[in-house]
Design a binder for these strands. Structure first.
Length: 683
RNA sequence: GCGCCCGUAGCUCAGUUGGAUAGAGCAGCAGAUUUCUAAUCUGCGGGCCGCAGGUUCGAGUCCUGCCGGGCGUGCCA
């Protein structure tokens, strides 16, 4: 399992071009600019790169898009940028899309879309109910997306949210854009944690408790064994090691303090800094020692645990032996494993059901059991793996630590399983890309894994560690319960829904006439609560850590699920209020006109949906989509404030605006759907 | 020690492969409600983008050094 990133994924521009979907406005403008660039400068000037410098404008006064390529091109050609810009504009054939391009500042080319073009595009999107006019990519790629990957030995917790939610969203977006996706939940069902459960069952198992509620019993065993193993590890290894470290730091500090003070002021400063750093490290070491000591004292004061620990002095090794026996085909352990696995999987499935997350496959680690020995053999045969300190290791250029594929006791590791998984996926699915949505702390593992896989022969596939940061609590430290254990996922969802219900009810109660029945409130609360957790996760840049806050994620203002869902409900309600059936309206031949600036801005925003999706795919960042949706909702609000719809001045204007509402609603709903968030018609 | 990541408004966070005057939400202040759902909207104040150099027509963004924080670093996943 991978639950437990940090380098940003490489920007592989050669993949970007292939991944970009069909002709949205931006892609079209880039193509037009590219053609002009060839005429002005010739094909050898890096046309694609220059054309990529057509970007959406940041300020409406510059039009909708701007081409920034005249400056660098001017540099290359040794001509004034404005002159180059003028030449480009002369050759630029965009009359069907834009007003006459304007040159501004040092050589920006500002492009303002024609109203007729906007309305034509919107009109074309109208009948396309599901895709809102977005055609699939011309050259689909095959993506394997590896996400969630919980450990079956213990309940899912807060650490699984990001992988599950981000992975699911990326899969949906990739698929919608037109790629082939294969989602695979690489469940941890074959590692050391199972040795713990097996050992626990053999010594502390309660048959009756298991019959009554299997998963809590297994969780109890896991926690118990884990505690006992930890006790011995702390007492015999960690604490002595911490003591040694304190001693080392003490002597280092005294050495530094006794050393003569350098005469040179700069050296003096460095010297003082070294001392203060060493002192800081000494304080850290002492604190760590005290913490371990306190842990030990607390444990030894526990009248139930201490005797158990004494009765199982070699539990750490015994657990590993159980794991090794399972891997070696021991009949008893195998039978236990087969007995324990189904209830664990059923429990996990419950959570996925609630989250609305599905997978094409859930090949756990155990699926690759039979392949592991062969993987190591092959690596040996190809000279990639060699023995070192009794283990089989792959030594990689530029890395101090080897990639260990087999332990000295013969057991395999997740490195082995991951390699077997890659081989399997390449053989069966022949993907163009393999995405691992796993937290940033495993970046070293994936660097090694990918490097090894390439050496092994899988060098014609894009490997991506789609890493993400940690979910933090209010204190800025990893989100934990007061007692220091990780927060269970299902409890987290419960609380979000509970709080959402209170908010929904309180709001509805303030109405002169409550709008929602008790049942409806419950449904809304479920969608708002779960949506809040998902959206909060997706709206943050995945590489940064973020603070988990119910209050913030459930807020009705700002970039939250509740606000987005509210926006959708508000748009939708217009149809009910006006007695308008969207399908009939679309078929009625009514046309869209753009008079008010707010209408125009909304129309352009709707057309830019596919650009947002392209950005998500390009960088594997769902927050680009939440940003887009938030902006779209903002544009709608502005439109809603300024442009009466049902009370429009005349019938054609009313219909035009209703069509804009329809497109907005569908875009919002589709966007949220791609993020795994459900909408409601009323809230 | 080495490697990776982060440092943006009082707080929580964005920042489109280097673009024009660095943006949201919250909090603060001032407004809008006989409403198309006010769970909303409008406006104001608030920033040596950690510090110092460098590259560039142009740097929050790229390079170097420093300061501060997080994570990782041979038999867990």
């Amino acid at each position: 399992m991978r639950f437990l990133c940090a380098f940003a994924p490489l920007r592989e521009s050669f993949h970007l071009t292939a991944k970009v979907s069909r002709m949205n406005i931006l892609a079209e403008l880039r193509a037009r600019v590219a053609a002009a660039l060839v005429e002005v400068a010739g094909a050898e000037q890096g046309v694609a790169e220059l054309a990529a410098m057509v970007l959406p404008s940041q300020d409406a006064k510059f039009g909708e898009y701007q081409a920034n390529c005249a400056m660098p091109l001017g540099k290359r050609l040794g001509k004034p940028p404005r002159e180059v810009a003028t030449a480009l504009v002369e050759k630029l054939n965009v009359a069907d899309l834009c007003e006459t391009p304007e040159i501004a500042g040092p050589g920006f080319i500002n492009l303002r879309l024609k109203d007729a073009f906007i309305t034509a595009k919107l009109q074309a999107a109208l009948p396309d109910v599901d895709r809102i006019g977005i055609a699939p990519v011309a050259t689909p790629r095959t993506y394997v997306v590896d996400y969630s990957s919980p450990n079956v030995a213990k309940p899912m917790h807060v650490g699984h949210i990001r992988s599950t939610v981000i992975g699911d969203a990326l899969c949906s977006v990739l698929k919608f854009v037109g790629h082939r996706t294969i989602s695979d939940n690489h469940i941890g069902d074959w590692g050391t944690q199972f040795g713990m459960i097996i050992y626990g069952w053999k010594h502390f198992g309660d048959e009756a408790a298991f019959a009554k509620a299997p998963v809590p019993e297994l969780t109890r065993l896991y926690r118990l064994v884990n505690t006992l193993v930890e006790y011995h590890a702390v007492r015999d290894e960690a604490l002595p090691a911490a003591a040694t470290k304190v001693g080392e730091q003490e002597s280092r500090v005294s050495q530094l303090e006794l050393a003569p003070t350098p005469a040179d002021p700069a050296e003096q400063k460095k010297h003082a800094k070294r001392i203060s750093q060493a002192q800081g490290q000494l304080a850290d070491a002492r604190r760590e020692y005290k913490e371990l000591e306190a842990k030990l004292t607390e444990f030894e004061g526990d009248s139930k645990l201490k005797p158990l620990a004494d009765a199982h002095p070699t539990i750490g090794q015994a657990v590993l032996a159980e794991t090794a026996a399972l891997h070696a085909g021991d009949a008893t352990n195998r039978a236990l494993w087969e007995r324990f696995l189904p209830p664990c999987l059923a429990e996990i499935e419950e959570t996925y059901k609630r989250l609305g997350v599905t997978f094409d496959h859930a090949f756990g680690e155990s699926f690759y059991e039979d392949d592991l020995a062969g993987v190591v053999e092959d690596l040996k045969k190809k000279g990639l793996a060699k023995p070192s300190d009794g283990a089989m290791c792959v030594f990689l250029a530029g890395q101090d630590a080897p990639f260990i594929v087999q332990k000295k006791d013969g057991a395999f590791l997740y490195a082995t399983t991951d390699l077997a998984t890659i081989a399997y996926r390449m053989r069966e699915w022949k993907p163009d890309a393999m995405l691992y949505v796993v937290d940033h702390r495993q970046s070293f593992h994936f660097d090694s894994l990918f490097a090894t896989a390439r050496l092994w022969g899988f060098d014609n596939v894009e490997f991506q560690h789609v890493s993400f940061g940690t979910v933090l609590g209010d204190d800025g430290k990893p989100f934990k319960t007061r007692s220091g254990s990780s927060v269970g996922l299902s409890g987290l969802l419960d609380e979000a829904v509970e709080r959402a219900l209170a908010i929904v009810s309180a709001n509805d109660d303030t109405r002169p006439e409550p709008m929602l029945s008790t049942d409806e409130r419950q449904i809304v609360a479920e969608r708002v609560g779960i949506g809040a957790i998902k959206y909060a996760d997706l709206a943050h840049n995945r590489t940064s850590d973020y603070k988990f806050s119910y209050d913030k994620m459930l807020a009705m203002t700002g970039n939250t699920a509740a606000y987005m869902q509210y926006s959708y409900a508000r748009v939708s309600s217009i149809f009910g209020k006006g007695g308008v059936d969207p399908a009939q309206l679309r078929a009625s031949g009514a046309t869209i006109t753009l008079d008010h600036p707010a209408e125009r801005a909304l129309g352009v925003a709707i057309l830019q949906f596919s650009e947002a999706l392209d950005r998500v795919v390009g960088d594997y960042r769902p927050n680009y989509l939440t940003d887009y949706l938030y902006e779209l909702a903002g544009k709608y609000s502005s439109f809603f404030e300024n442009c009466p719809v049902l009370k429009a001045e005349n019938e054609s204007l009313r219909k035009s605006r209703l069509l804009l509402c329809d497109l907005t609603a569908r875009t919002l709903a589709r966007g949220l759907d791609l993020l795994g968030i459900e909408v409601v018609e009323r809230m």
